[in-house]
């Protein structure tokens, strides 16, 4: 628990974004997420982008149906956001990020 608490305090977000090649919604989601990482988390995040076309097994393991799907692996609890992440404020709320700060 010690390490995790530390991580949590550091406020580092671990995120996975499942996309399908360079489909329109995928590109849109990637852009929004990169923007959030830079502006709101100040780079204090790990983002893995998984292309289900190349990695169908990863999609299978994670039980992904919809594209794009964003998974917040850390902090817990795990949560998912489906869609092109078009409304930034809602994405921030969904990730539990409040106005440029992490909690």
């Amino acid at each position: 628990m010690g390490v995790k608490t530390l991580q949590s305090k550091m406020g580092k977000h671990i995120l996975e974004l499942y996309v399908n090649g360079s489909s329109l919604t995928s590109v849109e989601a990637i852009e929004t997420l990169q923007n959030i990482c830079e502006e709101h988390l100040h780079g204090n995040c790990e983002v893995e982008i998984v292309d289900v076309l190349k990695n169908p097994e990863r999609a299978e393991e994670a039980g992904i149906l919809a594209i794009p799907t964003l998974i917040r692996k850390w902090p817990l609890p795990e949560s998912r956001i489906i869609g092109a992440l078009t409304i930034k404020s809602r994405v921030l709320a969904g990730l539990g990020i409040t106005n440029g700060n992490t909690h």
């Binding site: 399908n20 919604t25 289900v52 169908p56 999609a59 992904i64 919809a66 799907t69 969904g94």
Partner: peptide
Amino acid sequence: EDSITVGDYDLSAFRIRLEH
């Protein structure tokens, strides 16, 4: 897990898994 929807999506991940 909780899941919310923000923006357009499709089920291409499902189709790819199915085909795979």
